[in-house]
Design a binder for these strands. Sequence first.
DNA 1: CGCGCTTTTGAGACGTGTCAAACTGGGTGG
DNA 2: CCACCCAGTTTGACACGTCTCAAAAGCGCG
Lengths: 254, 254
Amino acid sequence: MLKPDVIHLHNMNTTVIPDALKVACSNCNLRELCMPVGFNQDDMNKLDEVVATRRRVKQGSLLFSNGDPFSSLYAIRTGFFKTSVSAEDGREQVTGFQMAGEIIGLDGIVSEHHSCNAVALEDSDVCVMPFAKVEDLSREFPVLQRHVHKIMSREIVRENSVMMLLGNMRAEERLAAFLLNLVQRLHARGFSQSELVLRMTREEIGSYLGMKLETVSRTFSKFSEEGIIEVKQRYVRIITPDALKKIFNPQTCS
Amino acid sequence: MLKPDVIHLHNMNTTVIPDALKVACSNCNLRELCMPVGFNQDDMNKLDEVVATRRRVKQGSLLFSNGDPFSSLYAIRTGFFKTSVSAEDGREQVTGFQMAGEIIGLDGIVSEHHSCNAVALEDSDVCVMPFAKVEDLSREFPVLQRHVHKIMSREIVRENSVMMLLGNMRAEERLAAFLLNLVQRLHARGFSQSELVLRMTREEIGSYLGMKLETVSRTFSKFSEEGIIEVKQRYVRIITPDALKKIFNPQTCS
DNA sequence: CGCGCTTTTGAGACGTGTCAAACTGGGTGG
DNA sequence: CCACCCAGTTTGACACGTCTCAAAAGCGCG
């Protein structure tokens, strides 16, 4: 009953969700996160067309990968992803971690092929938004058009600050910034602003922050010894947020 | 005769160019670089509306800076820019170098304010494209809409590879990649693929590549001693491009 | 319950940063 | 027109942070 005619895409870990299970944007509780505001009900109903299907992605499996033809953007409904690029010699760079309400796949627009990999770090559920449809509706609804532009601009600005992290900051500053960013985003989604469970390994954190997994671990331990955080494997509790902010930004936080 | 009623904006180094000097996109020789292809003449004439004005930016002066209200994108007609972000404590990270035909200002869309600084590294000339007009015409011309999306996506992809550089590569690899990227872009604009004159200082290169100016200088010297390049201050000649490619990517290039 | 992946911790190596000094070249003013 | 000045560059010696290699411990999954 729950899986009547599930169509298999790409691999066994990614399945299309049948119509009966589809949830419209108009009453999705993530709406304010991934959809523009200022629509009346009629508009919203038309906008629901953007989301053609939903797709489940099992932990550890790929939503898309480098070289895949680009067709859609993906809005994360539930779950957690990492995106990464890889050099020809196999070195991998994590370019971001994405959670519910965030959009992935923008990298594919320019060349019609994805240039990065998106891996689910936990069982996830995404809304598939065919980009052709996004563009069609963007022409009809200026507020959607503006929304799409803002999402792309936000990604550019985010990457600018990652460049600042990677180019100018030391290990402690990077990890402090990383933790603060993560809890801030989780808090915006209704989670605690002091506790979190990391969905990624030390190695993935290190790849994102441009440091080795051992250095990530050591820096966690250092913060822990200083009483700034409590760490137990993937679980992290931020005891003194101000201390973290001070490490991240020595200037402002007194 | 050449400056009848020049209006001063922002500061004395940035001037609006009078109508008489305006050059339409339709016969701009950079068209294939910053405008979409596949337009008929009528469309092109309408598209010329995008470029409201042009603006001169003197070497060393700002086109826009962090916090400025966002209103327009800028297409570089002539000249050379750097963009950078700065932390509260004053540390600066160069986020890119832009040359003729490239678009800057995308960072401002998301918050209606610019989040980075754009400085001319030589006397430059940009086309001012009010973003509201870009959006209006994008709704009318799908090919322009697609073009705008591709420009933003391209920037995201570029920043992904900078993250790879900063996160995973050593000084020599970074500088090799930087030089190869620069000559490749210059060559696409009709310049030599082996000679170039750097428009930026060692410090600015270092900021972009996440290394100190002394390390940049030493790495230049090392390449020079190895006979890979010839360096004389800002002038660089690439003697053995393959050696550079091999440094950048140990794997592929035999 | 045990295997394997992840994490932690240690010791030493190495690359890049830091500080300092000398050199170069272009621009400016006498 | 030359000398000076200064920003930018080069080079050296040393310090320091992070990486590398290694081993042990912790935890989750089958």
